[in-house]
Computed example of a mutant assay.
Amino acid sequence: MRGAARRGRFAARMMAAGMMAALASPGVSARAWADAPILVEQRPLSFAPLARKIVPAVVNIAVTQDVDEGPTKVKVPPALRGTPFEKQFRERMRSKREQMLGAGSGFIIDPSGVIVTNNHVVGAADKITVSLSDGTELQAKLVGSDELTDIAVIQVKTDKPLPFVTWGDSRKMDVGDWILAAGNPFGLGSSVTAGIISARGRDIGAGPFDDFLQLDAPINPGNSGGPSFDMRGQVVALNTAIVSPTGGSVGIGFGIPSEIVQPIVDQLRKSGHIDRGWLGVTLEDRPGGGVSIVGIDKPGPALQAGLKPGDLVNAVNGDHVDSARGLIRAVAAASPGSAVQLRIQRKGKAMDIAVVVGRRPEDNNG
Rank of each mutant, 00 (worst) to 15 (best):
V294F: 02
A79D: 07
T240Q: 01
P26I: 06
T166S: 14
R343F: 09
I219P: 01
V114H: 05
V321G: 04
N184L: 05
A302Q: 05
V59M: 06
L23F: 15
R171A: 10
V153Y: 05
S29L: 07
V121T: 07
G123Q: 13
E86T: 08
R329C: 00
A5C: 06
A32F: 07
A241S: 08
K349H: 12
F47L: 11
K87V: 11
F10S: 10
G226D: 04
Q304N: 11
V250P: 03
A330Q: 10
T117N: 03
K127S: 06
I296D: 04
S46T: 15
G82S: 11
I108Y: 01
T166D: 14
F85H: 08
L213A: 01
G205K: 04
G277W: 13
V58S: 05
I154A: 04
D275E: 15
L268A: 05
G106H: 03
L213N: 01
V40A: 10
F107N: 02
T117A: 04
E284Q: 15
E91F: 08
V261Q: 02
G306F: 09
A124D: 14
V165P: 05
L342P: 00
P263C: 13
H320T: 14
T72K: 03
G27P: 00
A62S: 14
I115S: 02
V261Y: 03
Q42S: 15
P309Y: 11
P309R: 14
I344T: 08
V321Q: 04
A140D: 07
A182M: 11
D169W: 12
M173H: 02
G337V: 09
R9Q: 14
V291Q: 04
S292D: 06
F107R: 03
G337R: 12
A12M: 12
I274Y: 07
G123A: 15
S145F: 08
P49A: 03
D211N: 15
G106A: 09
S170Y: 08
P299V: 14
V67E: 01
S271D: 11
R43L: 13
V357M: 07
G289L: 02
S29F: 12
D352E: 13
A206P: 04
D322F: 09
R200A: 04
G70F: 13
V28N: 08
K87C: 00
G135S: 08
W33R: 03
F212W: 09
K347I: 02
A32S: 14
F10K: 04
R43I: 09
D210E: 09
P161D: 15
G3D: 15
V63R: 00
K127A: 09
W178G: 00
R360E: 09
L238A: 06
V316M: 11
I293M: 05
N317K: 07
I38C: 01
D126G: 11
Q99M: 10
K308E: 15
I293H: 05
M93A: 15
I151T: 03
D275R: 12
G222D: 03
S190E: 10
S258W: 13
G102C: 02
V28K: 00
A333C: 06
R94N: 13
N60R: 00
L342Y: 09
A21K: 13
G306W: 04
A22Y: 06
P218T: 03
T129V: 15
V321K: 04
G272W: 06
G295S: 10
A354E: 12
F209A: 05
F85L: 13
R360C: 12
A354I: 12
P257N: 08
G225M: 11
D210R: 06
V143C: 06
K308P: 01
R346Y: 11
